[in-house]
Design a protein around this nucleic acid. Sequence first.
DNA 1: TTGAAAGCGCTAACAC
DNA 2: GTGTTAGCGCTTTCAA
Lengths: 340, 340
Amino acid sequence: MKKSQVTIKDIAKELGISASTVSRALKNHPDISQKTRDAVHRLAEELNYQPNAVALSLKNSRTRTIGVIIPEIVHYFFSSVISGIEDVAYDAGYNVMICQSNEKFEREVTNAQTLLSNRVEGILVSVTKESDHFDHLKQFIKRGIPLIFFDRDAKGIEADRILINDKMAGYKATKHLIEAGCKRIAHLCGPQSLTIAKERLSGYKQALEEANIPFNEEYVLSADDFELGKKATRELLNLETPPDGIFAVNDLTAIGAIKSIHNKGMNTPKDIAIVGFSSGRFADITEPTLTSIDQHGYEMGSKATELLIKRIESEEESIVHEDIFIETNLIIRESSIHNK
Amino acid sequence: MKKSQVTIKDIAKELGISASTVSRALKNHPDISQKTRDAVHRLAEELNYQPNAVALSLKNSRTRTIGVIIPEIVHYFFSSVISGIEDVAYDAGYNVMICQSNEKFEREVTNAQTLLSNRVEGILVSVTKESDHFDHLKQFIKRGIPLIFFDRDAKGIEADRILINDKMAGYKATKHLIEAGCKRIAHLCGPQSLTIAKERLSGYKQALEEANIPFNEEYVLSADDFELGKKATRELLNLETPPDGIFAVNDLTAIGAIKSIHNKGMNTPKDIAIVGFSSGRFADITEPTLTSIDQHGYEMGSKATELLIKRIESEEESIVHEDIFIETNLIIRESSIHNK
DNA sequence: TTGAAAGCGCTAACAC
DNA sequence: GTGTTAGCGCTTTCAA
């Protein structure tokens, strides 16, 4: 199944010249006579010669490849990030090697080894939910290979980080509901083991506090998918004084909430306003369209890659690592226009 | 920024032995004394030696890397495919290099060159909407590098193909509407330059024909996203005799159709039944939930990669290429329960 | 049991 | 202007 590819030697032999002359001719080295250059170019074209990137990598100790370790590819946010990574890498002439950890720590470790073996020049990582120690990632630092964390943080490693300001986002979402006239705002929150979920809850609390709305424990339920959103909302609606606004930790949960509200014969946004947190291309196709926090996954990927390439190409030894927060913004749609 | 990595030579020098001995010791070659072996392994561990995959690739002319060219990563279906690819590749010890063409032909050409340069051992391609000639891909065939097309076909190339049976799917969708009692079925179709769009249309026609429903040109409009779906549906509703069923080329288009139907004060499924074609996690969260064709993207990716690896590792010269069709199935939800 | 040497494809310093 | 040589990191004959 393998016919090996065209090499510089093949061209050299065919033309009766040396490999180095071919090499120089191909890069239009001024020393080489026009005649030889033309002949080489013509033959290269004809044979569809493609320089062997593997040989070049070995020679130059530069692979022009960056590695990515990501928990899951099938996830709107993560795939947006990958898209941003790929676009920036492409423009800068880098290749991208993507590994999916499937949220398994063991696989993350293997992925790291693979990328190390393949001599990636830099690496972008979003750790699994399981990951709690990071020796496998420290290897990169030790070898001077730039490492950048995105979205999910890994405490205790000297590295750059590109994160979302989740607390601020939770704050913005809640404040918006307050400004829309809601008095009793509930929050459907994510698992408190995840920093991002904790931060969003914390932003919610801060907004209430600033508006002098007392925090009500009954209004905070754990729910982070469509079904759980439906269920939790049913419970909220059965309270003596049900909420008139809900901030959900992601869009699917928000959509579940809307569904339960409809099923109860009530209306969103009139009776209960809803704000979600983007987790897909859902917000503008629901009925009503969903006010939601935009997470800018693409931007996260592109910013991370820009910084990574800057690190790769920088000569400096001592680097001050940055924590970069991607600003989220609230996109106001129909589900929160709550005019009481 | 670069401290070069540990090599076999480093270990050899440190231990005062030759590189070849280290190499053999590392693979537990029986010739090497237990003592040397132990010492080498210990030091390799200590220095966290990782074999240089680049050097190995050059030496063996085997990169253990497969290339992927995909139109867009941020797309539920495509990201599912990637996930399937990555999982199978990982299990088989292959790396994956992903390139996104962004639906641009020029970029697809560059991507192909990059992957060729990087000496991928096989390649999976889904061509752009623009692609109409494929010399850049024929290069792979010419060099004996297995090439497999997935989802989108490229006519006139000798290669394996993993496709969805789009005609059958279009047929199933339309037949379902007929069985649900629809008499006037419209189709919102994709660009006819894409085989998949053509096939779906063709399945639609076949179902009509079988049911002795005359084909009506007015009922076929081009629309393949949310906005276009809304617009095209408005036009359909303005016809003298509007349809009572719509088969849309993808889910977003179907959801756009539902929106326009609602806006017109009509009801889905009562007035007009709708069937979509899966393009996301939308179908079960819409109101009403959407009857849709399930495309099995993950399976497409994993099957394609299995076949690709089989091709890579096969010694045979003459290969009979296969067209593999992934079976789709219709998932019936609320939007098509059309009881007149 | 180990070492020396050649070669995978390419480039660049050094000849001539 | 062009050729020779060495070397990137590794493996594998061949020789000792």
